[in-house]
């Protein structure tokens, strides 16, 4: 009897994570529905202005979407090459004892609080970039994106390295036995074999970059800006949510609803990339 009771409690604990997901989706959808009663979906998706807090409020998500995708693209263009090369190096070039030291140190990059990264982007990286490009403003997407990229390097490198190291040794031996070099073995055998695991790493990194909040809030400015120029300031979806939350918005107002809509959009975006990753993995596994 006692055993059954304990098992029931443990089971409830295990389902809690499902309730969290359910709660997130439910609340986001619930608070967004009244918003769309007020703003047509077409205007929301195609509008080029996002000014929910102005007298003459406009609700076009494109500027926020643009800021989010731009900062994510910059972050990934840093994190994916750097993380993948570092992973290949750790997995195929270093001795085990050195790897045991380097990997945890690299993982510390992901342990630094994001607000500290925001400080670093605004007050270290931006001034540094201004030395190269004097016209650069104090707030810009570039420095925020670069710092975000460094921040997510460990997500790419750690999981990729795990995937590469789990490639069976006899496959690597087979490649070397045919006269392949280390580089050839990495690119022709190890990476294709580890690709599925590496995709998970990339997807996690993309999710992190899309959802990253503090770095962009601090260093990229908070003005919604429909631009592809990384030297300009811009707001991401997350930065907008922060901006509104810092103020005092009455529960139920259109401004309050707009952060839920923004959150829902962000979640949807993350979901899209996850589905894409899943599809890529499946497609690749079929090919095998």
């Amino acid at each position: 009897m006692k055993e059954r009771f304990i098992e029931a409690i443990l089971f409830l604990a295990a389902t809690s994570s499902v309730f969290v997901t359910f709660g997130i989706v439910w609340i986001l959808v619930k608070e967004s529905i009244p918003f769309f009663a007020h703003v047509p979906l077409g205007e929301f998706l195609t509008g080029t202005e996002w000014t929910p807090l102005f007298e003459n409020a406009r609700f076009g998500i494109l500027p926020l979407l643009c800021g989010t995708l731009l900062s994510t693209a910059i972050a990934l263009s840093v994190a994916i090459p750097l993380g993948t090369v570092a992973a290949a190096f750790l997995s195929e070039y270093t001795k085990p004892w050195l790897r045991e030291i380097l990997k945890p140190i690299l993982e510390l990059l992901a342990a630094v609080p994001t607000v500290v990264y925001g400080y670093f982007a605004l007050l270290f990286v931006t001034p540094l970039l201004q030395k190269i490009h004097p016209d650069l403003g104090g707030f810009n997407v570039l420095s925020a994106g670069l710092v975000m990229g460094m921040m997510i390097v460990p997500y790419v490198s750690s999981l990729s390295e795990d995937a590469m190291r789990s490639v069976p040794g006899h496959l690597k031996e087979g490649s070397f036995a045919l006269g392949a070099s280390r580089f050839q073995t990495i690119f022709r055998v190890v990476i294709p074999t580890a690709f599925s695991g590496m995709t998970s790493a990339y997807i996690l990194a993309i999710s992190r970059a899309l959802g990253e909040t503090m770095v962009v809030s601090i260093a990229a400015g908070m003005q919604p800006n429909l631009t592809a120029n990384p030297l300009e300031p811009a707001a991401t979806i997350t930065a907008f949510i922060v901006q509104v939350s810092m103020g005092d918005l009455p529960h139920g107002s259109i401004g309050y609803q707009s952060i839920y809509v923004a959150g829902l959009t962000l979640l949807f975006l993350t979901l899209c990339f996850n589905v894409l990753g899943l599809w890529l993995r499946q497609k690749y596994q079929e090919k095998e």
């Binding site: 994570s17 969290v20 997901t21 997130i24 986001l28 997807i203 996690l204 999710s207 992190r208 899309l210 959802g211 990253e212 909040t213 997350t238 949510i241 922060v242 959150g263 962000l266 979640l267 993350t270 996850n274």
Partner: peptide, 8 residues
Amino acid sequence: LAGIPSIT
């Protein structure tokens, strides 16, 4: 859950 943005 690990991929869901913390702000949500």
